[in-house]
Design a protein around this nucleic acid. Structure first.
Lengths: 188, 188
DNA sequence: TAGCCCAGAGAACGTTCGTTCCCCTATAGT
DNA sequence: ACTATAGGGGAACGAACGTTCTCTGGGCTA
């Protein structure tokens, strides 16, 4: 196994374990045994656990947003329905068996106050999501597109967190209905 | 210092420290020095850290909801404005200098997956908030009051989490505007 | 074949943390 | 005044964790 493969296996293991149980609950030893990467190579790829954590979050950010954007684009629907498609995709996400809320919200709650690096990655993720929503809204004829984008983001965050705590994927539908309302109200 | 006073001082210290920095980031030693309670009495009051954590969350649940309910009642406004007053109170909460999001969402992200007792307290808190909102909605003439209550809860959770991550209290205003929209749309 | 280097396995180290134990003092009851 | 007891301070313990070190084997080169 070369260095690149080790990196991937480590990040795969990190994603699975950190998301499922939290960051501090997963030790280096478990990452090693799950990934099958030796300790020496692990520290060669990531000289400290914190770096692996931040890489894990960055990669998850990329992939999560890519999955969302791909789904929305694939629908091939007009701009307003693209916004609603975001919430349709959330529903499929909430339905995944290992869904446990937004990894960034969870990480922020766990380590945002102590590890500035993590707080920064979390903020960057959510800023990117807000930008994405703002981009969708920019194609619409609405009053105050900026405000609408922020409100939609609020629905995304709220439904993800709410669905995790209640273990009820129906939260996506409620967020979608609310988004629908925001869209028609903002139309001009 | 008697046992009762020690309990209060410990819970006060726990609230301050756990909320500010996270649960695992705060050790028994710091709780001891901050509260001024001796180790022996600490373990007399709470035989394990986990019990102190759960008590902290339960007390915070009580107090948080009491503060919210008191504010809403004090406004002396008609039912529909009482719902909006919830978001006015959120704004004052977000503006508090040590605001760091919903303690229950944070605790859930940190320990919800590993400590079932904590997950339970978190769910109980959010269920109680949903019940409170459902009570406010029950006084209104709306279609599907249950659904409206859930949507309002989604806005509360989303704005609290969003305000914490962006460090921007204006999230309360956006949630309020969205709630306003939900109210007028549901009116019958 | 001999020498060299890299990688893997896992022992070892130092620290931190929750929890327990020990010792000393101060006080209350007789 | 003497003893019994509870409480405070803090050392000690055992486990867990992140990180480093050591030993060993295997493949590559001269």
């Amino acid at each position: 196994m070369d260095t690149d493969e080790a990196r991937v296996r480590l990040l795969d293991a990190a994603e699975e374990l950190f998301y499922e149980r939290g960051i501090q609950a997963v030790g280096i030893d478990e990452l090693r045994s799950t990934s099958g990467v030796s300790l020496k190579r692990l520290y060669q790829c990531f000289p400290a656990k914190q770096q692996l954590v931040e890489e894990y979050l960055r990669r998850r950010d990329d992939r999560w947003r890519a999955r969302l954007a791909a789904y929305v684009t694939e629908q091939g629907v007009p701009p307003e329905d693209r916004v609603l498609a975001v919430f349709d995709w959330l529903r499929t996400w909430f339905d995944e068996p290992n869904f446990r809320g937004c990894a960034f919200v969870n990480s922020y709650g766990e380590l945002g106050a102590t590890e500035p690096g993590i707080a920064e990655v979390v903020r960057a993720h959510h800023a990117a999501v807000r930008d994405y929503l703002a981009g969708l809204v920019a194609d619409l004829q609405v009053r105050e597109p900026g405000e609408l984008g922020e409100q939609l983001w609020l629905l995304v965050v709220g439904s993800a967190t709410g669905a995790a705590i209640t273990e009820n994927a129906a939260m996506a539908g409620r967020a979608r209905a609310t988004a629908q309302l925001l869209l028609t109200a903002a139309r001009r």
